[in-house]
Computed example of a mutant assay.
Amino acid sequence: MTTYHQSTRGEPRVALVTCSDLADLDPDDRLVLTPLAAQGVAVQSVVWDDPDVDWSSYDLVVLRSPWDYALRRDEFVSWAATVPTLVNPADVVRWNTDKRYLAELSAAGVPTVPTSWIEPGESWQLPAQTGEYVLKPAVSAGSQDTGRYDLADPEHRDLAAAHVRRLSEAGRVTMVQPYLRAVDTEGETALLFLAGPEGLAFSHAIRKGPMLSGPDLGPDGLYKAEEITARTARPEQLAVAEQTLATVPGGTRQLLYARVDLIPGPDGEPVLVELELTEPSLFIGYADGAPDRLATAITTHLARTA
């Protein structure tokens, strides 16, 4: 546990929740510390599974980088349900940590990457047609256990089948998605929304370069390296993001942040690849004023819990 600003009587106390591998926070998250201190907020970084933490001693508990939860999702969701003043809240965590929510969003009319699901123990019939596909678990963080396979390549077909078996034997659901080649040129666009006095509002956008170069060959760290640059969101991207957020169970007023990840579909129009409401990188270092806006989001939720 790291204290960044010594609390005194009357100051609100905020926990920024992380994991043991990032006990001192992700560097991007540390950018919010100065603006919070300027607003008189006492901040500590706290590891989510530390048994000695008294979560009720904090006025607000903010999920930031608990990125080791994927293999212990049930434990993580149960923990979230015990934490008072958690944002985003436990019901959102339960819904959002299993990517099968994409099926709900698609059924609600949100344009999403076509996705099929392989339950543990199910046999998988590899697609007869050639093409590139992405395989990943329905519960994951940081692109762990994610691979890209060219099914025209016999070796890739064998590796894809092995990937599904590996996830199935671990009791994990596999997602199968076509690889949309526009990612190789345009990349992925992440639109960041932060809470403010008037509710959740668009803050900034970034571009992620292509990350998947081939099959998943086993563990390679807590998260894959990312190529990040600032990006200006286009109106059609903002429209899909707003459509996506309108489907969140319980509404957006409960949210401190949201990240909507989009990629170009086959016709060039944006489609949703992921809605991040649990522990997304917010990339506040890539937009002027974003650290201050995140601090405002936190103090806005502090005021609601007062």
Score class of each variant (00 low, 15 high):
2 T>D: 03
2 T>W: 06
3 T>C: 09
3 T>Q: 09
5 H>W: 10
6 Q>I: 06
6 Q>G: 06
7 S>Q: 14
8 T>L: 05
9 R>C: 03
9 R>D: 11
9 R>L: 12
10 G>R: 05
10 G>A: 09
11 E>L: 13
11 E>Y: 01
12 P>Q: 02
13 R>S: 14
14 V>T: 09
14 V>A: 02
14 V>G: 02
16 L>D: 10
16 L>T: 13
19 C>R: 01
19 C>W: 09
20 S>H: 11
20 S>C: 00
21 D>M: 01
21 D>K: 06
22 L>R: 04
23 A>P: 10
23 A>L: 06
24 D>Y: 04
24 D>E: 15
25 L>F: 10
26 D>E: 14
26 D>A: 10
26 D>T: 09
27 P>D: 13
29 D>H: 12
30 R>I: 00
30 R>G: 06
32 V>M: 15
32 V>F: 07
32 V>P: 03
33 L>S: 12
33 L>D: 13
35 P>N: 10
35 P>L: 04
36 L>K: 11
36 L>I: 07
38 A>H: 11
39 Q>G: 07
39 Q>F: 01
39 Q>N: 10
39 Q>W: 00
39 Q>E: 15
40 G>V: 05
40 G>C: 07
40 G>Q: 09
41 V>I: 07
42 A>S: 15
43 V>Q: 04
43 V>C: 12
44 Q>W: 04
44 Q>T: 13
45 S>F: 04
46 V>W: 01
47 V>S: 04
47 V>C: 14
47 V>W: 11
47 V>I: 14
49 D>R: 11
49 D>M: 01
50 D>N: 15
51 P>T: 03
52 D>M: 00
52 D>W: 00
54 D>C: 04
54 D>Y: 00
54 D>L: 05
56 S>Y: 00
56 S>F: 00
57 S>N: 04
57 S>D: 14
57 S>L: 04
58 Y>C: 05
58 Y>R: 02
59 D>M: 01
59 D>T: 03
61 V>M: 06
62 V>W: 03
62 V>L: 11
63 L>Q: 08
63 L>D: 00
64 R>N: 05
65 S>G: 07
65 S>E: 01
66 P>M: 05
66 P>T: 07
67 W>C: 06
67 W>T: 03
68 D>Y: 02
69 Y>P: 04
70 A>F: 15
70 A>E: 15
70 A>R: 05
71 L>F: 03
71 L>T: 01
76 F>P: 00
77 V>I: 13
77 V>Q: 04
77 V>W: 01
78 S>C: 02
81 A>P: 03
81 A>L: 05
81 A>S: 14
82 T>Q: 15
82 T>C: 03
83 V>Y: 05
84 P>E: 03
85 T>D: 10
85 T>Y: 09
85 T>Q: 11
86 L>H: 12
87 V>M: 05
87 V>H: 14
88 N>K: 06
88 N>E: 12
89 P>R: 03
89 P>M: 02
91 D>F: 02
91 D>L: 02
92 V>Y: 09
93 V>N: 02
93 V>E: 08
95 W>D: 07
96 N>H: 10
96 N>K: 01
97 T>Y: 06
99 K>Q: 08
100 R>M: 07
100 R>T: 15
100 R>A: 14
101 Y>S: 05
101 Y>G: 08
102 L>K: 07
103 A>W: 05
103 A>L: 14
103 A>N: 11
104 E>P: 06
